[in-house]
Design a protein around this nucleic acid. Structure first.
Lengths: 231, 231
DNA sequence: CGTGTCTGCTTGTCAGACAATCGGGAATCT
DNA sequence: AGATTCCCGATTGTCTGACAAGCAGACACG
């Protein structure tokens, strides 16, 4: 029983470092969900988490509250937490929310980011292009890392904590979707091109064009994902 | 509609009433923050909450995690939680996020809400109008309740849990703002008119017009609030 | 075959304990 | 006096163990 479940959360011993233990645990469980080692509908049983992560139940419960608020986990009273299931309608809404909010983030980036941040955004998109060339079928791991990097730079440059927080949780939910359905058919080249358009508009300091390019990108991603989805 | 099942048993899914203690506590603290009994910058000391709310520390800590994720409370490691302080830039961004997302919610409402929900939305806005007439200076308590009601109906009709969750936290943050600065000069009549425009567009099933009216409303509210704000 | 009961697992909550850390004030040095 | 150092109390972070309450499935019963 144990041998199977432990491997889900990665290497065992959890040692105390600078950040609160709680945050490390949150990250581990979050990653387990986003990497689809825990799939939508799976229950998160406190005792199991306690045993496998070697932390107290109090800590586990705090972690669950955090993930609940992020929407990655759904808690029904007296029955505990399970990985959130998203309907097709939810999926569409989440993509639409992301579209409008990322457009806003891009506008803020144009307004607020300095030269260096623009350069780094360019570098990030170049990296995406590179990984997309290597990628054959679906998204590779490198591809995902590169995209994360891109968004890190983007959010940092938009210099808005509220925006960043909200978009982070939305993006997490999108990844949940990826775990729900089969992985997206992977249109890495198109995606790279679309993001390139965003960066070019940003470099031209054209907020509106950049925002539109951004919306276009998400709409396309949404369309690609939605065709894969069932009910 | 399946007239048989619903009418006999009342409102569809039996909703849990006996909420976990934790949720009651969360609500209390949240209200304390939203009503500005706890002001931005105030520390939330676990021991004090334990004593005042008569619950265990474990419960208090879970509540703090929830509020942290809602953005109402900011936790710095080893120093505990304090009511979030929002900068003027944050304020602007939050209003802008609300504008685009509520526009989306309104569109969804037009697509998804049934006749009855539209009627209830109308009723809610009428109630707002009524309270705005009574109101002299700033927003009265009735005014706030009426607006909450309006948004409850709106969100329910848009039938999107992700949207609803996100908008709820955004709205909470706006109220935080209200506590940060002086209360908004109160433009209850204008607000009522603007919301009326939204409802009329909804009744005409004109999603785009409704969305635009909604954006206009929030932009105006934002402008009114922002003039009050310092750095 | 439907119904009622029992049992085990899980969640919700509590109390108490201890180490680590932070902030501020006292004591000290220059 | 002013700056620096040190120490202490308050507070957070985490753990352990405990118990009631609720749910779900097994089981026995009419």
């Amino acid at each position: 029983m144990d041998g199977v479940t432990t491997s889900v959360w990665g290497p065992d011993p959890l040692t105390r470092v600078a950040a609160p233990l709680r945050e490390q645990v949150t990250e581990r469980v979050r990653n387990a969900i986003l990497d689809a080692r825990l799939r939508p509908g799976d229950r998160l049983i406190e005792r199991e988490l306690v045993e496998n992560l070697r932390v107290s139940r109090a800590t586990v419960r705090e972690v669950i509250r955090e993930l609940e608020a992020e929407g990655l986990v759904t808690v029904v009273p007296q029955r505990g937490a399970q990985v959130t299931r998203l309907s097709a309608a939810d999926a569409a809404d989440i993509y639409e929310m992301r579209a409008t909010l990322e457009a806003l983030a891009v506008r803020r980036f144009v307004q607020r980011a300095d030269e260096d941040q623009v350069r780094r955004l360019r570098a990030a998109v170049e990296e995406i292009k590179r990984t997309s060339r290597r990628a054959k079928g679906g998204d590779s791991h490198d591809q995902l890392v590169a995209k994360d990097r891109f968004y890190d730079v983007l959010f940092e440059g938009s210099a808005s904590l509220p925006l960043q927080q909200t978009l982070n949780t939305l993006q997490a939910r999108v990844r949940l979707l990826r775990a729900t359905s089969l992985s997206v058919p992977g249109r890495p080249k198109e995606a790279a091109k679309e993001l390139l358009a965003v960066v070019e508009a940003v470099e031209a300091r054209d907020a509106e064009r950049a925002a539109e390019a951004c919306v276009l990108h998400i709409r396309n991603a949404s369309a690609a994902a939605t065709t894969q989805l069932g009910p």
